[in-house]
Design a protein around this nucleic acid. Structure first.
Lengths: 347, 347
DNA sequence: CCCAGTGGTGCAAACGTTTGCACGCGTTGT
DNA sequence: ACAACGCGTGCAAACGTTTGCACCACTGGG
C-alpha cells in the first residue's frame, strides 16, 4: 500500500530557518516571545515551503482532537442535511471539524462507530432515536462529552436536547379539531423510534374525549415518503375515507400528498394533510404543507454549541435536558379553523 | 480548558496482562504469532477494561489517517444529503471515516478547510462547482489523493467524476421540443457554477435552430427553491406567458411548481415544468416532476471508491475523467411528446 | 555436552507536534 | 570585576501507537 508522499514538517521549516523545531512551533502558534526578526523569517520560510501543521500529531500531544463526532441514524432527506448544516455552522465557528457517520440501525453498530472515533474526536453529537441504543449511550456519556439530540428517556440520563414532540403533536390535534375534521387518520413512525412514539402519544392525548378519538384510523409508517404514499392509498380504499390525515413527519406527508394528487383527491377540500418537522421544502409543496415547525438547523447548532461548551469547560458530566419548542405552522394543506378561540389556545 | 479524562491505553492493558505493549498491539491487530493462551488472556483483559485503540496515535505511526475529507459547497437540501449518503456507504464499507466540511463559497475558504484537514485525512473528495476554486485544487491534487465531483474544466486536469450535464440538458430540450412547447423559459443556476453553465449551454445548443430558441426567456437563479418561486412569479407577470419552464435543478423547479399552484395555474396543462437532478422527492411532488436523472448517491459512492482506490494503490496521481451518464425521467409535470420519433432519439 | 537454530516476546525508535526546563549570554547592580 | 538576573532559544520528553531488531530460552542434532 502506497503512502502519501512525505510532506513538509516542522523540522523541515526549522532546518531551513536555522532554528529549533520548538521555536518554529512557538512562533507559528503565537507563543513566541523572542526576536521579531527571527519570527518573521520563520514565518516566511514556512509560507514558502507551504507548511501546514499536522493535525493528528498536534491532537496527540495536546490531547485535543479538534473534531467532534456526529452520529446519525441515517443520512437521508432534508431533515439530516439541515441538522448537519446547523452542527457544521457551530463547529466551524469554533474551528472544530466534524467526523460524520450515518446509518446506525442497531445499537451495537452505534457503539462500534463511537469506538472507531476514539482518539479522533473530543466529543459526540448523537442522534439515537431508537430506544434500544440509550443504555449503551449512558455509559459513554459518563466518559466522554456527549450530547444526545432528539427525544430521550428520562430513565437514562445524559445531556440531551429534546424536541417538544408531544407539545407539537397536541397543537396539531387541536388545530385539526378546530377545523372540525371528524374522521382523522394518523400515520406513525418507525417502531421503537422515540420521536415517533412521543408524537403519537401527544396526538392521542389531545384527541382524548373528542369524537375524532373514536373514529381515529392508525396506519404504520417508517418516516419515508413511500410509506406516506402507501398509507394514503390504503386510506382511499377504506370504506369511509378520513377527512384529515396527520403524518408523523413531513416526508410521509409529502408521499401522502402525492398519492392523493394522483388519485384526483383535492387537498384540503376533500382530505386535509398535515406533517411534522417543517423541513424547508414544506412551504414549497403544492399545496403548501401545514406542519409542526421544528427548528432543525438551530437544533443541530445548539447541540453542537452545548457540546463544545461541555468540552471547553469540562462540564460534560453535567446532565441537562433542554427542550426545544415547536410551533404549529398553518399552511394551505389544511383548512381554516372553524373556531378561532381554539387557535388562540394553540399559539 | 479541561481535558477529557485519561482513558485506557495499550500500556494499561499490557500492565494488567503482564506483557509488553508491543505484544498487546500485535495481538489486537492480529499480527501475533505466539502462545494462543497469552493472546486469549490479553484479549479478555482488553475487553474487560474497555480498551479501544486511539485512532489518532495509530494514524500518526502508520501514516494512514483512516479518514477521508469531504468538502462541499454547502449542506443544503436533498442533493447533498444524497451525495453524502453515497460517500458514507463506500467509506463505511472500507472502514474509513468521513471528515465533512460545508459552506465554501470562496476559493480561499476551500483551501483553508483543506489545510485544516491535513494529517487527519488520507484524501479529499471535493465538490467545487465554482470555477474559481479549480486552480487551487490542481495544486493540491498533485500532492494528495483528490477526487473532484461535479463538472470540471478540461483546462485544469485532476481526477474527476463529472455529471453529463450537457447531455441531460440536451435530452430535456429535445423532450420539450417534442412536446411542441413553443415558448420555453429557462431558470439558470448560480453565476460561475460549472454545473449550471454546462446545463444551460447544453440546453441552448439543442434548442438552436428551433422556433423556441428565438422566443426563449432566460431568468437568473441560485439553485434554491425561493429562486424558482420568484422566477415563476416573474413569468406570470410577463406579457406572454411561456408554455414550458425548465429549471437548472429540482429545487428551483419545486419553487416554481409552488408559485404556479398558488396562482392557480395548472401544470402541465397551462405551463409544463421540468427540473434537473431527480432528487428522491421529485417523484413525490404534485404533479410528479419531469427531470433529468442524476444518480446522486451512486455518484458520491463511486467518487469515494475511486478515491479509496487511489489511496490504496498509490495511483492518485493518475488523472482520470469519468462521465456519469444522465437520463430523462418523464413524469407528470410535462405533457406527452407529440412526436414519438423524437422521443426515441432521446432515449 | 555444546552449539545452532527457532519461536516467543520485549526494547526502543519512530510518527510530528507541544512544552517544561535549563542553558548560555548579555546586562546591570554593588 | 564579580554575582545576579533576565531574556532568548534549544534539548528532550511526552502523547499512544506500530514495528524492526534483538534477546532469551528452549529444543534437537552432532
Amino acid at each position: 500500500m502506497a503512502l502519501s508522499a512525505r510532506s513538509i514538517t516542522l523540522h523541515d521549516v526549522a532546518r531551513d530557518a536555522g532554528v529549533s523545531a520548538a521555536s518554529v512551533s512557538r512562533i507559528l502558534t503565537g507563543r513566541f516571545r523572542g526576536e521579531p526578526a527571527v519570527a518573521e523569517r520563520v514565518r516566511a520560510i514556512a509560507r514558502q515551503l507551504g507548511y501546514v501543521p499536522h493535525g493528528g500529531a498536534r491532537a496527540l500531544i495536546t490531547r485535543r482532537a479538534g473534531a467532534m463526532g456526529v452520529l446519525l441514524p441515517d443520512i437521508f432527506g432534508e431533515f439530516f442535511s439541515e441538522l448537519l448544516r446547523g452542527a457544521d455552522a457551530a463547529a466551524r465557528a469554533a474551528g472544530v471539524q466534524l467526523l460524520v457517520a450515518g446509518a446506525h440501525s442497531a445499537p451495537e453498530e452505534l457503539v462500534a462507530a463511537i469506538g472507531a472515533m476514539r482518539g479522533r474526536v473530543d466529543g459526540y453529537l448523537v442522534m439515537a432515536p431508537h430506544t434500544a441504543a440509550r443504555a449503551a449511550l449512558a455509559q459513554l456519556a459518563a466518559h466522554t462529552p456527549t450530547v444526545v439530540v432528539g427525544a430521550s428517556d428520562r430513565a437514562v440520563p445524559f445531556p440531551a436536547l429534546v424536541v417538544d414532540n408531544r407539545g407539537g403533536a397536541r397543537a396539531m390535534a387541536q388545530h385539526l379539531l378546530a377545523c372540525r375534521y371528524d374522521r382523522i387518520a394518523f400515520i406513525g413512525g418507525p417502531r421503537g423510534n422515540a420521536d415517533a412514539t412521543a408524537r403519537r402519544s401527544g396526538f392521542l392525548q389531545a384527541l382524548r374525549g373528542s369524537a375524532a378519538a373514536r373514529t381515529l384510523i392508525e396506519l404504520p409508517g417508517d418516516f419515508n415518503q413511500q410509506a406516506g404514499w402507501d398509507a394514503a392509498r390504503a386510506l382511499l380504499r377504506a370504506p369511509r375515507r378520513p377527512r384529515a390525515l396527520f403524518a408523523a413527519n413531513d416526508a410521509m406527508a409529502i408521499g401522502a400528498l402525492s398519492a392523493l394528487h394522483d388519485a384526483g383527491v383535492r387537498v384540503p377540500d376533500e382530505i386535509a394533510v398535515a406533517g411534522f418537522d417543517d423541513i424547508p421544502m414544506a412551504r414549497f409543496l403544492a399545496p403548501s404543507l401545514t406542519t409542526v415547525h421544528v427548528p432543525i438547523a438551530a437544533l443541530g447548532e445548539r447541540a453542537m454549541q452545548r457540546l463544545l461548551d461541555g468540552v471547553r469547560h469540562g462540564t460534560h458530566a453535567t446532565v441537562f435536558r433542554e427542550v426545544v419548542p415547536t410551533s404549529l405552522v398553518h399552511r394551505a394543506s389544511t383548512g381554516a379553523p372553524a373556531d378561532p378561540v381554539t387557535m388562540r389556545g394553540v399559539a
